[in-house]
Write a protein that binds this DNA or RNA. Structure first.
Length: 518
RNA sequence: GCUCCCGUAGUGUAGUCCGGUCAAUCAUUCCAGCCUUUCGAGCUGGACACCCGGGUUCGAAUCCCGGCGGGAGCACCA
């Protein structure tokens, strides 16, 4: 219909003109006769969260299809979460399918790290399939396509073949007889051809106006040893063959994928049609651009190799391992992607929004501690012996307090950035008021009314504070002093007051935290 | 060059299919006020959007046409 829009428009205009020549009353009367249901306006219930999936009422079978070339990162988490959300909503099965059909792009450790990452995300995997176990299935379908005249073995140079395609011309092998095709196909396996000397190509329509949809390669020869199958196989499927075969074999009902795969979907549909298979429903969502994050597997690997990054969980990286290490909760990531939905528009990722969601989750359980960055020591003058009773959490008095003893003649530390403000009077949080006298602090009572006069509150660290460092997402390290109590918070996410949230990763021999966000 | 997809506040989203209840939702962000102990916390309030131009209509975010803008694909990667 779309291609005949102009015709339709003129027909429609004629009809509309007819209808518009009637008065509103006549129109209504006429409509009551032919289609009274249209007079009743449907009320549309307001939808929350993800939109419904068409045809999902009976349950769904969906898949997450990672390429095992490295650990999962923030970008990958979107499809994992969305699939999991739908499987959870409608009931059904979520399959993890490793798409390892390019031997050069397989990192064996990813077969373990990806399920770990998915587990941490809270994504339930019911079945696992590895494509490199399934070569014979791909060969079998390829042979059927060949036998039915829907494919050919092409021995052109790839560039030549591409050029012919571009000008809508068949290559010399396209129309060869089926028997010849099948014997050429056998030769792909027996060593007759080297890499790029022969490929199986699926026929579509060489006259297709969309150049991306004219004949596509489906099987190729590659002598790179595969981490799982070694050199047992040298004929590898390209994604459009293996994905189509497996989506059918796994009886998927719905496929969620990025819209960069839109043309691949169309290509795969040719295979479904040729084989007489019924297709899953496809949903294409837009691209996400994630600023300020290193997500390129190859660049991350290079950075790890040259020491710029400490590993896949370096806080500078956008991997799930790094986010986990920093104290970002999987629930925050889930909420983010659910709110982003799966529209076809391209979107820009917002760290601020993710951090805000994460804060909602961690704030209630995060114990409060003093951490003084870039510490500057001050002598205490005229201090009575006193004990700061700083609440572990201001909203939960029942969790108790950090009791820190301070006495005259001892010293304490303020953060360099606070000192540089040059205030004369300060309130030490949860302790008392002071007057700054050079490199000393003189006790100035404990009346909270000074806050009304605009006196600032600073956090501090006592004389017996312990060294601590915080690894920052920009690769920096903030060194400072923390109150003793932080040593007992290992493994938890805390709020370093006025500094930000951080995960306490290690407390011995020294305290090391990884910064979460402000 | 060819093909396809998509344009609602800074960001994400609801509404678009089926025109009116939309001077447009919610979240985040930003700003202000409140709060006698942190906060970037909480509460209250505020700011900011229908890409542009025509058309149809009593009425257009919504339908039509034309622009403009953004993205993707045209791999023997996925």
């Amino acid at each position: 219909m779309r291609s005949r829009a102009k015709e339709i428009a003129s027909v429609a205009k004629r009809i509309v003109d007819d209808v518009n020549s009637l008065s509103p009353e006549e129109q209504r009367r006429f409509l009551e006769e032919i289609a009274p249901e249209l007079l009743v306006k449907e009320s549309r219930p307001k939808e929350f969260g993800l939109p419904e999936l068409e045809g999902a009422a009976e349950g769904v079978r969906m898949r997450i299809a990672p390429n095992p070339s490295g650990p999962l990162h923030l970008g990958h988490s979107r499809m994992a979460i969305l699939n999991d959300e739908y499987v959870g909503r409608y009931g059904g099965v979520c399959i993890c399918r490793f798409e390892d059909t390019d031997p050069a792009r397989v990192d064996a450790s990813a077969y373990d790290s990806i399920p770990e990452d998915l587990g941490w995300l809270g994504v339930a995997i019911h079945e696992t399939v590895v494509q490199s176990d399934r070569f014979e299935d791909y060969y079998s379908v390829a042979r059927q396509l060949l036998g039915a005249g829907h494919a050919y073995v092409c021995t052109c140079k790839p560039g030549d073949w591409r050029e012919l395609k571009g000008s809508k011309k068949p290559c010399p092998h396209r129309e060869a007889a089926t028997s010849e095709q099948l014997s050429m196909f056998d030769k792909m396996f027996d060593g007759t051809f080297g890499q790029e000397e022969a490929a199986l190509v699926v026929k579509t329509d060489l006259q297709h106006p969309n150049p991306a949809l004219r004949d596509f390669a489906a099987l190729r020869i590659d002598d790179t040893p595969h981490p799982r199958t070694g050199s047992r196989y040298r004929v590898y499927p390209l994604m459009n063959l293996s994905v189509a075969v497996d989506d059918h074999a796994l009886s998927l009902t719905h496929v969620l994928r990025g819209k960069d795969h839109l043309n691949n979907t169309y290509r795969q549909e040719y295979i479904f049609d040729y084989m007489g298979w019924s297709k899953p429903k496809y949903v294409h969502y837009g691209r996400v651009s994630i600023q300020d994050a290193q997500l390129s597997t190859s660049r991350m690997a290079a950075g790890i190799a040259d020491g710029r990054y400490s590993g896949w969980d370096d806080p500078q990286l956008g991997t799930l391992a790094a986010l986990r290490r920093r104290g970002v909760m999987p629930e925050a990531i889930r909420r983010y992607w659910v709110e982003a939905g799966l529209k076809e528009v391209d979107i820009e990722f917002s760290w601020k929004t993710l951090y805000s969601f994460n804060k909602d989750i961690i704030d209630d359980s995060a114990g409060r501690y003093f951490f003084v960055d870039d510490p500057v020591g001050f002598l205490l003058l005229d201090f009575p012996d006193m004990t700061a009773r700083a609440p572990l959490h201001p909203a939960h008095a029942d969790r108790g307090s950090r009791d820190i003893r301070v006495s005259s003649g001892s010293s304490l530390y303020l953060s360099g950035s606070d000192v540089s403000r040059g205030e004369r009077r300060l309130r030490l949080k949860d302790l008392c008021n002071v007057v700054v006298e050079g490199d000393a602090l003189r006790y100035d009572g404990n009346d909270l009314a000074v806050l009304k006069e605009g006196v600032q509150i600073d956090h501090w660290a006592p004389q017996d504070a312990v060294p601590a460092e915080v690894l920052m997402p920009d690769g920096g390290v903030r060194k400072g002093l923390a109150e003793h109590g932080l040593s007992s918070a290992e493994g938890t996410v805390v709020q370093l007051e006025r500094f930000g949230y951080a995960r306490v990763e290690q407390t011995s021999p020294a305290i090391r935290c990884v910064f979460t966000h402000r």
